[in-house]
């Protein structure tokens, strides 16, 4: 109880319970197609850069001790069907996980689902008031570009006599042999999305901490590049995502952000987050015609 009190005390002390942040993101309307994530596209030159402040995630334990990523730069454009968001932050080390005890660089952005006027609590939503999250990881991008790594990709010198699931002749088992193979990989046998190939970005719906659930189907894509101690990641999403968040041209909504530096063992609740929703306006269609 003392802990909760002190946490809330600290939050109240720096007035972090305001609904909105000082920054405001304007998604520029552009002609053409933004449905492909392109970190170096020309349209980014005209999109205003909003600096969003992040702090070390303060609510759920375990928490990071320090805010490794205090600032995230956000740009957004849309083409009336797709919203593209470019997220840039400093991270001294490229990390895509793979080995034991290694974690991936990652970024996430979230939108309210029920109401674009009054968003749910910023901490991943609340019961019956979900948020729609787009979660990119360097690890997921690697999956998309090179395929899900085999053990010999992760550990090139690994030597195994044989795996019981890698039999050539399924014999009388026929196609049912495949489910037999999965039994040797519990995560896959249970259909855990984590255990299958990723496509750069996960779409997640959450109703508070520890409730996130990866959604099937893809109305989004992402691509990131790391250079000179900086990540630049573009996540594109359909404006109208059935079962998720719905954005309208000329309308307003809110966004929240989180960043993980995998090289510093940030994963799960060890992350930097925005403590207030950032208002977002999607520029009207007539602006693009200008």
């Amino acid at each position: 109880m003392n802990l909760i009190k002190s946490t809330f005390g600290a939050l109240a002390g720096v007035s972090l319970f305001c609904v909105t942040a000082e920054a405001e993101i304007v998604a520029k309307a552009v002609r053409g197609d933004v449905s492909k994530p392109q970190p170096a596209a020309a349209y980014w030159a005209n999109a205003p850069v909003e600096k969003v402040s992040l702090i070390a995630q303060p609510m759920a334990i375990p928490r990071p001790a320090v805010a490794l990523t205090p600032e995230l730069r956000v740009q957004a454009v849309h083409d009336a069907k797709w919203l593209a968001v470019r997220l840039t932050w400093k991270d001294p080390e490229y990390s895509e996980a793979g080995h034991l005890g290694e974690f991936s660089d990652a970024v996430a952005m979230q939108f309210p689902v029920k109401s674009n006027e009054s968003p749910p609590p910023i901490f991943m939503g609340a019961k019956d008031n979900p948020v729609h999250i787009f979660h990119w990881r360097a690890q997921y991008q690697r999956d998309q570009e090179k395929g899900k790594p085999e053990m010999t990709d992760l550990y090139p010198n690994l030597s195994v006599d044989m795996y019981p699931m890698e039999f050539k002749d399924p014999g009388t088992l026929g196609t049912s042999a495949n489910s037999g193979r999965e039994q040797f990989s519990p995560g896959r046998a249970e259909g855990n999305p984590q255990s299958y190939q990723k496509n750069g970005v996960d779409e997640i719906v959450a109703e508070g901490f520890s409730t996130s659930s990866v959604q099937e189907g893809h109305g989004s894509a992402a691509s990131g590049t790391w250079a000179a101690g900086e990540w630049s990641v573009v996540i594109v999403r359909e404006l109208n995502r059935e079962g998720g968040s719905v954005l309208t041209v000329g309308g307003k909504t809110f966004m929240g952000f989180a960043v993980w530096q995998g090289g510093a063992s940030e994963v799960g609740s060890r992350k930097c987050v925005t403590m207030a929703w950032t208002p977002v306006t999607l520029e009207g269609a007539q602006a693009a015609a200008r």
Binding site: H99, S185, P186, N192
Partner: peptide, 10 residues
Amino acid sequence: MYNPYTRTSE
């Protein structure tokens, strides 16, 4: 223990 193939802990 972490399983780097299924990316879950076991």
